[in-house]
Design a protein around this nucleic acid. Sequence first.
DNA 1: ATGATTCATGCAACCGGTTGCAATGTCAAG
DNA 2: CTTGACATTGCAACCGGTTGCATGAATCAT
Lengths: 344, 344
Amino acid sequence: MGWLSHEEDCVEMTRTRSAPTISQVAAAAGVSRSSVSRAFTNPHLLSEETVKNVLRIADEIGYVPNHTARALSTGRYANIAIIVPDIANPFFPPMIKAAQEDADNSGFCVFLGNSNEDPAREDQLLARFLGQVEGFILVSSRLGEQRIRHYVERCPLVLINRDIKGLPRVLIDSGPGVSEAVHHLAELGHKSIAYLSGPKRSWSNTQRLAAVKKAGRELDLKVSVISTTTPSYQAAREVSARLINTGATAVISFDDLTAQGVIAGLSDHGLVVPRDISVVGCDDVLDAATHPSLTSVSSRSAESGRTALSILLDFLRKGNTGDIRFSLDTRLVSRETTARPRLP
Amino acid sequence: MGWLSHEEDCVEMTRTRSAPTISQVAAAAGVSRSSVSRAFTNPHLLSEETVKNVLRIADEIGYVPNHTARALSTGRYANIAIIVPDIANPFFPPMIKAAQEDADNSGFCVFLGNSNEDPAREDQLLARFLGQVEGFILVSSRLGEQRIRHYVERCPLVLINRDIKGLPRVLIDSGPGVSEAVHHLAELGHKSIAYLSGPKRSWSNTQRLAAVKKAGRELDLKVSVISTTTPSYQAAREVSARLINTGATAVISFDDLTAQGVIAGLSDHGLVVPRDISVVGCDDVLDAATHPSLTSVSSRSAESGRTALSILLDFLRKGNTGDIRFSLDTRLVSRETTARPRLP
DNA sequence: ATGATTCATGCAACCGGTTGCAATGTCAAG
DNA sequence: CTTGACATTGCAACCGGTTGCATGAATCAT
């Protein structure tokens, strides 16, 4: 490991040759800059011959229209930004990937911002992107509503998993899936379950907690709630004692990561999943790739990205608005971490 | 699920108010545009009083310098682009996250491109970003060497996991880590191990296979090689019978995903990891987040991102560099899926 | 032949900043 | 009282495109 220098064949990175400009093409082709411009953007305004000629020369010189200059004069940046709390959280990549792919197909480039769950950083990112994008997708934003509204005045913006009236938003509604999970547990014979809570201020957490409580009430189950400091694997692992003390025979955890933490924590106390305790995750980011494979509430993360992007592009094209609130429901994916409770 | 419209409180997204410009600030402050510009970029050229005054007025009006306009006139875009084959592959997000974070701290915005393993798409992305970035990080590029060199002439570029002479590149060398894994198994007392192979033509697979064989030879272990059709969880799960037939008491698998498949497959045959068979993964994308937590060869994906970024920024600041080939070695992260073999 | 249309192209202003250079003012040294 | 050095500020050109309007030529109807 280290820095190696090869003297042989030092092609290396030299100072970058500056790109050919529209003027150079114009000069070489013997036409005005306008004509070159039009050859690229409005060829129907020019004679076929001129267009062909200009394009040929441009190609020879290696000219490519400068995105930035074009953006400045037209105001159409052909860029959008996606800001997420944590790229490394497996919940987000499928979403980013889907949105990015669709943006790409519409000729848009996408900026990616990682707020690290920090509102100040998120704010800074927004500000930095503001002058060079046509729109934002803000995922699970931690930013205050006032700040968000501030940015909306300047630039179109679509929220994912944040519910603010009047702003276009896509919400993954854990309700149905979580409710289904509770029913699933009840059917297996569980009487007492626990919910391992995520970040207090998170919209998803609120949703999930409410759904667990509601379904628990309807089915006459005992529902205990356990909180962690942060929704991490380690934090979840460490609350297992409290979890066991509740007497619950099944746990629904805020997300898949914490669910895995729970499984490890239970194991630390000699308990085996699902024999001794059943565990359900949320988001289904692991597919079936763990053993035992995790029963989880599917999150449709990719679809949310696609949907948000299409709302954004629709707005950019048609100016259409209205109070858009798109809700994606979820369902339970039943796998190997849930089973009948042990007989007492 | 579906589109809901609330008539009440339709704040909605209205046509965007255009941002205040430098001229407006200049007028309001009674100074020239140059002075406003300098108040933001070279305050030391102005009297303290003027600076204070301009900034105050700018703040009142809500003026923020336009990134695009600035980029056009200075040529400093303060943007870079990262292009990866597949965002959803858990190997990449930590890398992207690390690079993005450092870029952020240096005032750079980052574009993210997803080539979907498709050279043509990758080429298109490069072209599209070209006019608005100061540099590229190209990860596991699938592009032909000629095309890459073509772009390097136009714009600084750093490669990750692609070895082209003369271009700055960061390579993750699985050799040491895999070798360490073999030693680890040998120390535990294993005499016969297996390598579950990944894609035949993959550079990483070749490297890993070679390292296993070499270390096995040195330590006088029996090494069996098992191939799968594709390196998926399911495929790995399905070869467990063949695996068991080799008589190996430990397996090193191409990556973490297939390692998990192996664990599940062994379980299908009533074997428990690590009691009956030890398993080692590669890339360490799961952290400790599974149970039992996976012993794996760390890939240092985040570090590779950080390193590539710092090479790029160094170049942007200081200019010329030599032929940089930065190699990151790997090491074994020993966790819970490896143990002494059962006594025969 | 003539005025009206249409087509192809160029001119010049503009997008919103930055920056080299010149102009003006201030102050201290000679 | 000059003179020169230095600090402040404005002027105007420039970055690389786009686009409304004007121009001139060719086509067409009358």
